[in-house]
């Protein structure tokens, strides 16, 4: 998760409570917003006696996380009024244990209330497919139009060297649900977004085999990667006309 968001947001509060750990942060330009939740089910055990916000610089956290082995068990601990976060990595065979403390910071962050929204179009597609579309089209243009209709969803762009588009039609993969493409539509949608941000969101592709795009005209796009016990959501404000 940290790897997926560290290029978008730098200093974040990890809000801990009985439900688990949540994070909400806007990127520097305030065009995109990251919202993450790791429910208690993601942890074993999980304990939180008092609601607490752990202000963490993600670059610092990455430096420490890189010291962990892929299969290590990670334990995160913070005291009641902490000035640091304690991280312990234990190898699966328990023959190696490493321990780090990183300094916490006071982060005064604007918290936005995001209402439950009934979107006009909800598209589910393989995350690798979405990543490829964003990467391919970003070679041509800075922005992409996403047009969802009952026939399919069309990603199109135009730039100095020419234009391009990719159209996806609904498709069911019976063996692997995450490889299916589905489109649920209440009304046609056509919105334009900056590809720079979408390419950035796709760094989360390794977290989930499929990604959900939720669109309604004139509201931010929701790009959601569902995780075992939680989610990573990105919201992106649409581009507006001249």
């Amino acid at each position: 998760v940290v790897e997926a968001i560290k290029d978008l947001v730098q200093d974040c509060n990890f809000d801990c409570n009985d439900d688990g750990i949540q994070l909400q942060a806007m990127d520097n330009s305030h065009v995109a917003l990251v919202s993450m939740k790791l429910s208690t089910g993601a942890f074993s055990p999980f304990r939180c006696d008092r609601n607490i916000a752990l202000g963490i610089n993600l670059n610092s956290l990455m430096k420490v996380l890189r010291a962990a082995g892929n299969d290590d068990i990670l334990t995160l601990k913070a005291e009641d009024q902490p000035d640091s976060l304690n991280l312990v990595f234990e190898s699966p065979g328990q023959d190696r244990m490493s321990e780090y403390d990183i300094k916490l910071m006071d982060i005064d962050q604007e918290h936005l209330g995001i209402p439950e929204t009934e979107y006009a179009a909800t598209i589910s597609l393989p995350s690798a497919e979405f990543q490829r579309i964003c990467r391919d089209l970003s070679a041509l243009s800075e922005s992409v139009s996403i047009e969802a209709s009952k026939d399919g969803v069309k990603f199109s762009c135009s730039g100095d060297i020419g234009n391009g588009s990719v159209t996806l039609r609904p498709h069911t993969n019976v063996e692997d649900e995450s490889k299916s493409t589905s489109i649920a539509l209440t009304e046609p949608v056509n919105l334009t977004f900056s590809l720079k941000y979408l390419v950035n969101f796709c760094k989360a592709s390794s977290l989930s085999g499929s990604v959900q795009l939720c669109l309604s005209n004139e509201v931010p796009l929701l790009v959601e990667f569902k995780m075992g016990a939680g989610y990573l959501r990105f919201y992106l404000a649409p581009k507006i006309g001249d």
Partner: peptide, 14 residues
């Protein structure tokens, strides 16, 4: 950025 609104145009502060 030009041609682009900020996200807090759409969502109010909690």
């Amino acid at each position: 950025p030009p041609g682009q609104r900020k996200i807090n145009f759409y969502y109010s502060q909690k």
